[in-house]
Design a protein around this nucleic acid. Structure first.
Lengths: 204, 204
DNA sequence: GCTGACTGAATGAACGTTCATTCATATCTT
DNA sequence: AAGATATGAATGAACGTTCATTCAGTCAGC
């Protein structure tokens, strides 16, 4: 899997958003058939275009997946940082991150399936991703925790990097569980409880 | 992907452990090339047998993956339950679970790559798995937490099912991060810190 | 010389990608 | 204004490759 530079392969074209159309169709198709199970022809059909048209907008099948990831991750990080503005204290910051994280994922099931399952296809892909946007995200969380330690709001006797992984892992597992569950509950609804647990612990 | 009943496709054969040999080779091969990237012929070569021989012991390529999962998961649950015997209190139980969980994964990198990445190929696969052994595992954790609440060791004002997901998510993320990291640190080494964080929280 | 475990070349289906062709629309020309 | 010409987005059949799986044959052990 090349996973290359990922720029659009052609000019914005007539409808100016056919690229958009194909990307949406790809999310739906990958979510229901899986990345490897889905054929490019399926994506094209779902978008209402011919197979060849996909290659007017995307370099390859891989490029579809990468484009989905990049686009959404950029949005997510931006939304996350915006939400941080005006927060009062580290716990409040974590709460906002959790709400944005679970709020976004809970909003679009197909997108979430792609993110939680399809994107984790192979170490190649994962290394690619985890060493960039995802690393940034984890870094943001660690900073919030370290800052909380600096102000005395959080205990200083723990590794902020480890705590960040635990926090992210909790959110991630909630999301994965949600898409795998047949029940249709609200994902964001648990955000506050998770932060409460993370801050206060289970101990009585 | 069928993901069928997964029984051995043939008799135990001559060396009586050729099946074993192939399974080990499959773990190595899937870990390095990825499940979809690996050819059955690669697995056979790694095992020092011919391609056709694989089909004397396994129904299909999928069956290889399913067999790896089942075998290891059964071992893990057994080891986990054994470790629980003689524990003093809920926090101690969680600590033992964490140690076994991270201890096992930290012991075999290839196996862990298969578990943390390759096994999560598609919702089909994941639903398959999460609705069985994995569900049991999560249930065991929830029971430990609920029991801790009953004895007053843990706060009663939180959902034990949610807490279990958070706990599992933390361990899972640690493992995924470990295999994706280039650094070679000890995975079990963090077990106690995670449990400490889970029990006491980050709050000062 | 039988048995059956083992082999690995052959098979055939699946699928990503290409590209010659079509055709609706825009741009000229008179 | 009407025709002529150009443009390039879109098409989808065809290509070529890649594998999972099969099976006719080999051979070691008894």
């Amino acid at each position: 899997m090349p996973v290359a530079a990922s720029r659009r392969a052609a000019r914005p074209a007539g409808p100016a958003d056919k690229r958009e159309l194909i990307l949406k169709a790809a999310v739906r198709t990958f979510a229901s058939r899986g990345f490897f199970g889905a054929q490019v022809a399926d994506v094209a059909r779902a978008a209402g275009v011919a197979a060849g048209t996909v290659y007017l907008y995307f370099r390859s099948k891989d490029d579809l997946l990468v484009s989905i990831f990049e686009r959404n991750m950029e949005e997510a990080i931006a939304e996350g940082r915006a939400a941080l503005a005006g927060a009062t204290g580290a716990a409040d910051r974590l709460r906002r991150i959790a709400r944005v994280h679970l709020g976004r994922l809970g909003r679009d099931r197909d997108m979430t399936v792609v993110f939680q399952v399809e994107l984790r296809q192979s170490t190649k892909f994962m290394e690619q991703f985890s060493s960039s946007l995802l690393r940034d995200y984890l870094g943001d969380i660690r900073d919030v925790i370290a800052e909380g330690q600096a102000t005395g709001e959080f205990r200083a006797d723990l590794n902020p990097r480890l705590a960040a992984k635990v926090f992210f892992g909790a959110l991630d597992e909630m999301a994965t569980n949600w898409i795998l569950s047949r029940r249709r509950y609200s994902l964001v609804a648990d955000a506050d409880a998770i932060v409460d647990l993370f801050v206060k612990g289970v101990g009585a």
